[in-house]
Write a protein that binds this DNA or RNA. Sequence first.
DNA 1: AGCGTATGTTGTGACCGGCAACAAATAGAC
DNA 2: GTCTATTTGTTGCCGGTCACAACATACGCT
Lengths: 409, 409
Amino acid sequence: MPSAATVRAKRRTTPAVNPRATHLALALRCVAEQSGEISRAGIAAGTGLNRSTASSLIDELIGGGLVREVGSTARTRAGRPGTALALRPDGPAGLGIDVNVDYTAVCVVDLTGKVRYKHVVAEDQRGHGTREILDRVDRLARGARQAAEADGLDLVGSAVAVPGIVDRAGATVTLAPNLGWRDLDVSDLLPAGAHGERAALDNEANFAALSEAGLLRAGGSYLYVSGQIGVGAGIVLDGELYRGSHGWSGEIGHLTVDRNGPPCPCGRRGCLERYAGHEAILRAAGITDGAGTTFGVRPTADLITERAQAGDPATLAALAEAGAVLGGVLAGCLNLLDVGRLVLGGIYRQLAPWLAPEVEREVAAHFLGAGWASPEVTVSTYGAEAPALGAALSVVRTIVADPLRWLTR
Amino acid sequence: MPSAATVRAKRRTTPAVNPRATHLALALRCVAEQSGEISRAGIAAGTGLNRSTASSLIDELIGGGLVREVGSTARTRAGRPGTALALRPDGPAGLGIDVNVDYTAVCVVDLTGKVRYKHVVAEDQRGHGTREILDRVDRLARGARQAAEADGLDLVGSAVAVPGIVDRAGATVTLAPNLGWRDLDVSDLLPAGAHGERAALDNEANFAALSEAGLLRAGGSYLYVSGQIGVGAGIVLDGELYRGSHGWSGEIGHLTVDRNGPPCPCGRRGCLERYAGHEAILRAAGITDGAGTTFGVRPTADLITERAQAGDPATLAALAEAGAVLGGVLAGCLNLLDVGRLVLGGIYRQLAPWLAPEVEREVAAHFLGAGWASPEVTVSTYGAEAPALGAALSVVRTIVADPLRWLTR
DNA sequence: AGCGTATGTTGTGACCGGCAACAAATAGAC
DNA sequence: GTCTATTTGTTGCCGGTCACAACATACGCT
């Protein structure tokens, strides 16, 4: 029997809907869900396809280097034991890069969704030119690529997270105030994949949200709130990122909390950022850096944490107030979207011990479905590396979502 | 060649992914988009399928009674003119029912998306028992069914809109305060389709939103705000209704406008309904019904309109304030969802001359993408019949979305 | 050892879509 | 009026994909 690839090459054009592609994705997804514990027969049962079909699909996935056989399945009942299937930890991997305001992070994730390499460098990007920033990115990316290759991985694509608004196509940065970028077409400037694939581009909060979804679309629906200099959110619906009409969904930093509130640089008044943003918390807690102007994110976030741990009343009050306001706004978001889970990320992650109870209380108080369902407030599993991790994951997810495109180069 | 139906009967089981089903839907969608002006060759061009395949698909759709040939296409260039294809105006149709607080509406929509019958009865349901309300519904549904049958239509399904929260499965009404319904399983109580199909169930605002989307998913993304006794919204993303995790997405009536605002029956303070709801507008305009308690919707909405037309200052001020608050909240919703269009429905439709400018101003002022994109504020094309129409449309849309399920009974 | 059971493979038939060839129907050129 | 170019719709053929059944394989249990 000729290899599947050879056979397909003969096909003149692919039909508008290719069932094989869908079935391959279905089978691969099944393998990913129970990696190492599922057999060909299990795939057949899980997908509803015939055993012979499942077998053929798996053979193709194995031939393409995405799946491998690992021993045999646990034999519980009588009958021939199946050969266990698992995602290949070598093979294609994704590179994620996070160009944040005061640090840059890179991350490599393999096909199984595991982090294989990560590197975070604290560098304040403010005041530096685009060329300089991109050079740093390139340096970090090269380091990651070398490490990945030494580890036997094939980096097949990269994705970049930026603290700003990105157009839906993922080609240009519409606005990243803290990097000084505006309508910048970065599709040619960013490091490409090993085979020349262009880097994907998205907002930091979006990729961070994806880090929580993991490899599969099993994470359900949730709202990921990322506290940074601003306040951003990523919306994940049924494990899939919702990006909106223009790609800037989840921009909640400038939702109005109080029409008569303090003025915001955006030109309006009483924006959420003025209550729950990083600088707002610092100001409310009475923490200044002397000059009283701009702050870096990590050091001062640590400072807040320290003071809170020490029991400083002003800091505790500031966190409580920020949590309450944040919770009130987020409750509205959860109601509108009808999403039952909230994940606190960014600086909110380390501030969660003081922030989360307030958020939880407000959310519960304003949640519509109170009585039938209760919203769940959790803390991000990853820290500063979340955006880079999510970016790297997004690369691998595209392979798992459509393996045929990968198999046919 | 044997008929397609006969051939398919021989097939033992359908594969997990049936390309035929997708292609039939694709072809039918193409017909729907350019009903009466497209030929088989046009379908092929529009879908990317081969002419022979398109022909076979169309033959099956014609055999199934969904499509018919109508004359020939306009002959512009050289070549044989094509036979024009159109959706059948007879054939399957949908029944939509709206059990509103103070009126009941039924509506029949044929396969082309055209309204073939509608009937609105003003009846206040408050204080009436479930049995009584359902009897009314049944009576109206019977009338619609008779009219539809006399018109040569085949009512293949029905959908019911209720002013309240419905579970995601569409089987039970979780809460409809103004009907006095709570956790009511209505799936057996509502009129079924001609072939025993159970009625679909959804929130009034959701179905009203669908009325704006039309038969096809071509309406893009928008937020439909329905002003009733409460304030509800339907979220339509890429022409498809977004229902949320539990089915109660779009419940914006109790979003907090002001944490220190007036108390709301829901137990919280400063909810949107207290500013932009029907009764709030009446109160702010100084319109009372003597007893000062409950109002009906239509008559008092007309009253507001009359006073506004007469230039009553209190009414104009009330509408301006309601519009401003509504616009502020909706701007936040549009930002979160990244949706660029807003449709005003319910009582907001007739109040739009005074409300819309304020809404538009606030939305524009708070819209994030100001500068790159501007939000569009429009008025619902349908009035009180919008929910019933949307409900009926939802039935027909399921056929257009998956014709194979219809063809195989 | 034999039986029942589950797994993986192979061969067959059916369905589906692309392709090419052909008849049909028209516009335009001469 | 006739011929040509062009477009449409149909038909036969072939390749790809999948369901199904039959079979070899490998295990537990008796």
